[in-house]
Simulated assay, not measured.
Amino acid sequence: MKKTVLLLLVSILFVSCWPTTDSTNFPRQEYQPVIITRSVLETSIVFQNTQPIVKSGKIYVKGDLMFINDVNKGFHVYDYANPSKPERLYFIKAPGATDLAIKGNIVYINQAVDLVTATFDPATRIFKITNRNKNVFPQKQAPNGTFGYTKDNEIIIDWNLKK
């Protein structure tokens, strides 16, 4: 009798752990890759007028300048001489960019699959790309962890939620 009750309890325990197929499970979100060609990526970093921040990422402060990443879009640059009132200077458009680092006058940008090196003179605020190390990073994954398929000359710079 005790074995029967124990077997029944163990059976109920296993059944309660069985995955269900009811409609309360959330559907998996599907994403569409935003793809550009290698030649477009390599000429895509440009200075532009200030823009509103869409999706802020990491913040980097170097001297009197503050850089705020707009994920996969580029970097907003602020005059940070007065930290209580930063002043917008310009936007560095860099499609696929998610991070930067600065050492001295050298700026390193993670742009999609490439590591871009540039020089930056804080006094004149002249920004010049000096090197591009291609395919240093893997292609971007979708927010749900899936991968996109691209041709040899194509780079994923972002992902959009399918409608």
Rank of each mutant, 00 (worst) to 15 (best):
M1T: 01
M1D: 09
T4P: 06
V5L: 15
V10M: 08
I12G: 15
I12S: 02
V15L: 15
S16I: 10
C17K: 13
N25K: 15
F26C: 11
R28K: 12
Q29I: 00
Y31L: 07
Q32P: 03
Q32V: 00
P33N: 10
V34Q: 05
V34R: 08
R38I: 09
T43I: 09
F47L: 12
N49P: 07
N49Y: 08
P52H: 10
K58V: 00
K58T: 00
V61F: 00
M66K: 05
F67K: 07
F67M: 08
F67Q: 11
N69L: 07
K73G: 02
G74E: 14
H76W: 01
Y80G: 08
N82H: 02
P86G: 06
L89N: 05
Y90W: 13
F91I: 13
K93R: 08
K93F: 06
K93S: 15
A94R: 03
A94M: 06
A94N: 10
D99C: 06
D99S: 09
I102C: 04
K103L: 13
G104Y: 02
G104R: 01
N105S: 10
I106W: 13
I106Y: 11
I106F: 04
I109E: 13
V113S: 14
V113H: 00
L115P: 01
V116L: 05
A118H: 14
F120E: 09
D121A: 08
P122F: 14
P122S: 14
A123N: 13
I126G: 07
I126V: 14
I126E: 15
I129T: 12
I129V: 15
I129K: 13
N131L: 03
P138I: 04
P138L: 01
Q139P: 01
Q139L: 02
Q141N: 12
P143H: 10
P143L: 03
N144C: 02
G145Y: 11
G145C: 03
Y149N: 05
D152W: 00
D152G: 07
E154C: 05
I155Q: 05
I156E: 02
I156L: 04
D158Y: 00
D158P: 01
K163L: 03
